[in-house]
Simulated scan of single mutants.
Amino acid sequence: MDSIFHEKQEGSLCAQHCLNNLLQGEYFTPVDLSSIAHQLDEEERMRMAEGGLSSEEYRTFLQQPSGNMDDSGFFSIQVISNALRVWGLELILFNSREYQSLMINPVNEKAFICNYKEHWFTIRKLGQQWFNLNSLLTGPELISDTYLALFLAQLQQEGYSIFVIRGNLPECEAEQILGIMRVHQQQRPRLIGEEEAQTKMGFGVEDEVVDEDEELKRALALSRQAMDVEDEDADLRRAIQLSIQQQQAQPNIPQQSDTHSTSDSGEQS
Rank of each mutant, 00 (worst) to 15 (best):
Q100L: 14
P189D: 12
L22N: 05
D228N: 15
A221E: 12
L142N: 04
Q100C: 12
I36H: 00
N105G: 05
S34D: 05
R47D: 11
V205M: 10
N115H: 04
A221P: 10
Y160N: 03
M46F: 05
L236P: 02
E57S: 06
L191T: 04
K8Q: 12
Y116P: 00
W87Q: 03
A49F: 01
N95L: 00
E206P: 03
R97T: 15
Y147Q: 09
S101Q: 09
S12E: 14
E212D: 14
L19T: 00
P254R: 14
Q255F: 15
N105H: 06
K200L: 05
N82C: 01
N95R: 10
S54I: 05
Q255S: 15
I4R: 05
D235Q: 09
I240Y: 13
P254A: 15
Y27F: 03
L191E: 03
L89T: 09
I123H: 01
E175H: 00
K110P: 01
I104Y: 02
K125G: 11
L89K: 03
L136N: 11
F61K: 01
L222W: 15
L126H: 04
E42D: 11
D2Y: 12
E196Q: 08
S66C: 08
Y99N: 04
N105K: 08
C18H: 09
R182I: 10
P65S: 13
I77P: 07
Q39H: 08
S34E: 09
E173I: 04
C18G: 11
H119M: 04
L84M: 02
W120E: 06
S35I: 03
E26C: 13
C14W: 01
L23K: 01
I113E: 00
P251I: 15
M48V: 07
E43W: 00
M201E: 07
S269I: 12
E171W: 07
R85G: 07
E212S: 12
I113Q: 05
R237N: 03
Q129F: 06
R47G: 08
I192F: 00
I4P: 01
